[in-house]
């Protein structure tokens, strides 16, 4: 097998996996702060996609400001969802499971009714390809990769060095302890939920020009995100990044040898393998 093909396959896998890492980071952030799994997380990805579609294709704005607006808009949607629904479900895993499934259907059906069922193309702001020998990546995907890496870095900095980011991590480690140190749990949770949703929205906005938007578009990335965080360890940010890179490698290389249906199974096989060896994931807390 020529080496270029192998490099191309790895590049294919990584480019998308990095975007799915954004979705996974949002999911795991919300899980660690509120102790719940938001199954409607993919729908915030979808909202980010549609916000981008409206900005670029309908209102004719430039892609970059649109993307920033879309991230903000989805963050606000997250604030609303947290205030109305998830605030009351802190730590109630089963209730949150049922309610978030309900929210998934509401948002998806709502999108179908409002936006229509057909795929909507989003014009790309970047054209052309970058070629290194026989290895090719489109400028569009290259920008997506850069943006995803940038956002991951910004999130890391935010959690590491900002006051609010530290408060989020404190709440994630010990909500009662954090409250006794004067951390406002309600506000911190709301902000954490919003940041988590905004990350999904950013991923949706980044991939909107690459894949077009449609109401069920959130299903695939959220499945990938689950694979990533189970492999990387629930609640762990470095774990999510590592999980994403592993998934990209496995799917990229796997696609050279297996059919696309089989490649989708590879991710789940990876989950099973990791869980057998390390039930809490690679970076999960005990």
């Amino acid at each position: 097998m020529p080496i270029e093909l192998l490099v191309q396959a790895l590049l294919n896998g990584f480019a998308l996996a990095l975007v799915y890492v954004l979705v996974a980071l949002g999911l795991t952030l919300i899980f660690s702060i509120l102790g719940i799994i938001n199954f409607a997380h993919g729908e915030f990805y979808m909202l980010g996609g549609y916000a981008t579609y409206f900005g670029v294709a309908v209102f004719g704005l430039h892609y970059v400001p649109t993307l920033l607006l879309a991230i903000g808009a989805v963050g606000l949607a997250g604030v609303v969802a947290e205030r109305l629904i998830f605030r009351h479900l802190r730590g109630k895993t089963l209730n949150a499971f049922i309610v978030s499934l309900g929210l998934l259907w509401v948002l998806q059906s709502g999108a179908q009714l409002t936006f229509g069922v057909l795929d909507k193309p989003v014009p790309s702001a970047f054209s052309g390809i970058i070629r290194a020998g026989r290895v090719i990546i489109s400028v569009e995907r290259f920008v997506v990769v850069l943006a995803a890496v940038g956002l991951i870095a910004v999130l890391y900095g935010f959690l590491q060095w900002s006051r609010v980011g530290r408060a989020m991590r404190a709440v994630a480690q010990d909500p009662d302890g954090a409250a006794l140190q004067g951390v406002n749990i309600e506000f911190t949770s709301m902000l954490g939920f919003a940041v988590g949703c905004a990350l999904a929205g950013a991923a949706g906005g980044l991939l909107a020009p690459v894949f077009a938007v449609s109401p069920p578009m959130g299903a695939l990335p959220v499945v990938k995100a689950f694979i990533i965080i189970i492999v990387g360890g629930m609640g762990s940010l470095p774990g999510a990044v590592l999980g994403g890179l592993l998934l990209g490698t496995v799917e990229g290389i796997g696609s050279l040898f297996f059919s696309s249906a089989a490649v989708n199974v590879l991710g789940f096989l990876m989950v099973i393998a990791v869980l057998l060896v390390r039930p809490r994931g690679l970076f999960g807390a005990a």
Binding site: R163, R166, A167, R169, A170, Q173, D174, D176, G177, A178, A179, L180, Q181, G182, V183, N184, I185
Partner: peptide
């Protein structure tokens, strides 16, 4: 609790509650 803390009442625990993933400095910053 966070509001009471804001008014000027803080407490420690019998079992020390520190944010275990943080450094000494990060704990103090919280």
């Amino acid at each position: 609790p966070s509001e009471i803390c804001r008014r000027g009442v803080a407490r420690t625990f019998q079992a020390t509650t520190l944010f275990r993933e943080f450094t000494v400095l990060q704990n103090l910053l919280v």
